[in-house]
């Protein structure tokens, strides 16, 4: 009756952007990702070197001609990194999208339908949760054939086990929203469940979906690195993970060729950190309890 109301309210886009760009975490995160995006998309224009060209002298340290040096096969590391960022981000975005789509569908249906549907879907979710994800990835990728699997398959393999947590969270949120008065009023206006899901429920989940998407992008990028290092992705597609894989199999560490693994590694860490920062910042801005005045 007299308790303070902490409530979601619609904010104007300009208000949101203002809040976001006043958040230190967001500025740092956004700065890093912006820089990497520029590198990925403008790189080939500014630095027109073929990453698959093996005619350069091998194992050159960074120089004016090759800013990040060359690897054991004589490929230009800077050009490789530019392509790698692009492909890694692609895997990230795909994994984020797949995970959100599967998790959202399962969570929404379970939460709205309730009853037996809910119980079946949640049992299924729990079963998927205990499947060892690396094992499943190895099985699927070797079954399809490592060289025939594109980045899309890698993202799909990663998503197939990661959606469970998201689905459960969505279901829990729906359960708490379902008993709210405005849902009753929409129902009593003759709205169907689907209409209520899209008009009344989804907007409430928007922030959570956005934050989860950024986090699952991170899972995708790092998951791909893991699979690459295990040698489960095609060697003809350059990603940041693949660069680390190449550095590992050419024993770059042993030969002191630090530029072939430290540079992609650093970029990977920066990418991961910036995504984490962005996710935290969004949470802070949208969640009034975390917002600092």
């Amino acid at each position: 009756m007299v308790t303070e109301r902490l409530e979601v309210r619609s904010m104007k886009l300009i208000e949101l952007l203002y809040l976001l760009f006043n958040n230190k975490r967001f500025i740092i995160g956004f700065g890093i990702i912006f820089f990497e995006l520029i590198l990925a998309f403008m790189g080939p224009l500014l630095y027109p070197v073929d990453p698959f060209d093996t005619n350069n002298p091998p194992s050159l340290p960074p120089s004016e001609e090759h800013p990040f040096g060359t690897d054991r096969f004589g490929k230009d590391v800077f050009a490789l990194v530019v392509y790698g960022i692009r492909n890694s981000l692609y895997v990230g975005v795909l994994t984020g999208t797949f995970t959100i789509l599967i998790g959202l569908t399962v969570g929404l249906v379970a939460g709205i339908r309730g009853g037996i549907v809910d119980e079946v879907l949640m049992s299924f979710t729990n079963v998927v949760m205990i499947i060892p994800n690396v094992l499943l990835a190895i099985l699927i990728l070797t079954y399809v054939g490592v060289e025939r699997s594109g980045l899309e398959l890698v993202a799909a393999v990663l998503s197939i086990t990661t959606w469970t947590g998201f689905a459960r969270a969505v279901r829990a949120q729906i359960l708490s929203l379902r008993e709210r008065e405005f849902i009753y009023l929409s129902r009593m206006a003759g709205f169907s469940s689907i209409k209520i899901a899209f008009q009344d429920l989804l907007p409430h989940l928007a922030t959570f979906i956005l934050i989860s998407f950024v986090n699952y992008m991170n899972v995708g990028i790092n998951g791909e690195v893991g699979l690459s290092i295990l040698g489960l992705t095609s060697i003809s597609i350059v990603t940041l993970g693949k660069l680390l894989y190449f550095a590992a199999i050419t024993q770059a560490f042993l030969f002191g060729q630090w530029w072939t693994f430290l540079i992609p590694g650093a970029i990977l860490i920066l990418l991961s950190a910036s995504l984490l920062l962005i996710a935290t910042a969004i949470d802070e801005v949208f969640n009034p309890r975390l917002r600092r005045m």
Binding site: F182, Y184, L185, M188, Q199
Partner: peptide, 22 residues
């Protein structure tokens, strides 16, 4: 159902929760 809700309607306790804030 629409026929029924046209005839039987409600006003709830919490006015703030009765509106979708979006």
């Amino acid at each position: 159902f629409k026929w029924y809700w046209k005839n039987v309607h409600a006003v709830f306790q919490n006015p703030y929760a009765s509106f979708n804030p979006f």
